[in-house]
Simulated scan of single mutants.
Amino acid sequence: MSHYADRKDLFPMQGGCPCGHIRYQINLPPLLVQTCHCTLCQRQMGSAFAINAVIESSAVSLLPSAPLTTPLSKAEQSSSSPSSGSVCGVLPAFADLTNAATTAIVTLPTDNNNAAHNAANNHKINKPILVALPTQSKVGQTVAQCPLCRGNLWSYYADAGTLVTYLIASTLDRPWELEPDVHIFTRSRREFVSLNDGKPQFKENYPDRAVFYRPDTKERVDALTELQGAWRKQIRAAYKAQFAKI
């Protein structure tokens, strides 16, 4: 199977949150795709690991909201009678009962098949909210979530600010197209997960991510590094000015 970066038919790729309120597009192949097996990623994802596509934030675009559809798996796409891909609906009675029994400050649409709802929202580009969460790597993390369904979409880390997006690959419409390039924090890998893809593995974080960048990303990485340097200078200057007032 060809590496995702060599697949000219893949990009741009689109994805979104579980309810369809936030939709996005990545316009370039990721710089790197990593699987993190740390226990905090397991908790945040509600799964055994997280697959993150590392990409410049400038290559990520927000799209108008869209009715939620069930993504077709790779096998279903090649099937003559796919079992999914239709517009998803929410049972109104169940949704109303659930919302009435909680203290949520937002309410999900009770019916994604409602024509009026779709017409009012399909042209709107909605923005995620940002939530600060801890990380096992001890680098500050801010997670972008849908304000309605609270689905996690991507993360920003304190070492790069909002210049670099760690996209949660499972939110893509075709997540299986991005195979991981490296596995990290395998010390907490769940025993039922078998890593037999031949990709590099690290018990903790990797010592130097630059080793795993492809040669074709050099110009992109160099430009990003320059921006990160300027951003760090601004942050240091801002902190210095703030402490000078104390």
Rank of each mutant, 00 (worst) to 15 (best):
L130S: 05
V131A: 01
V131P: 02
A132T: 14
A132W: 12
A132G: 03
L133T: 11
L133W: 15
P134K: 03
P134Q: 06
P134Y: 11
P134C: 07
T135K: 04
T135A: 11
T135N: 09
Q136I: 12
K138L: 13
K138W: 12
V139N: 07
V139E: 13
G140E: 14
G140L: 14
Q141W: 12
A144Y: 06
A144G: 03
Q145M: 12
C146G: 08
C146N: 10
P147E: 13
P147G: 10
L148E: 12
L148H: 07
L148I: 15
L148P: 02
R150Y: 15
R150H: 15
G151K: 08
L153T: 09
L153D: 10
L153P: 04
W154G: 00
W154F: 14
W154V: 07
S155W: 13
Y156S: 01
Y156W: 15
Y157G: 00
Y157A: 01
A158S: 09
D159V: 03
D159R: 01
A160V: 04
A160W: 15
G161V: 06
G161S: 04
G161I: 06
L163Y: 12
L163K: 01
V164A: 00
V164D: 08
T165R: 02
T165C: 07
T165S: 06
T165V: 12
Y166G: 00
Y166M: 08
Y166H: 11
L167W: 01
L167T: 08
I168G: 01
A169W: 04
S170E: 13
S170P: 03
S170N: 09
S170G: 04
S170W: 09
T171D: 02
T171C: 04
D173C: 01
R174D: 15
R174C: 07
P175W: 10
P175D: 11
E177P: 01
L178S: 01
L178I: 07
E179C: 03
E179V: 11
P180H: 03
D181E: 05
H183R: 02
H183P: 03
H183A: 02
I184H: 01
I184P: 00
I184G: 00
F185D: 04
F185P: 01
T186L: 05
T186F: 10
R187H: 14
S188M: 12
S188D: 14
R189A: 06
R190Y: 11
F192W: 13
V193N: 03
V193T: 07
S194V: 14
S194W: 15
S194P: 00
S194A: 07
L195I: 13
L195P: 05
N196A: 08
D197V: 06
D197H: 03
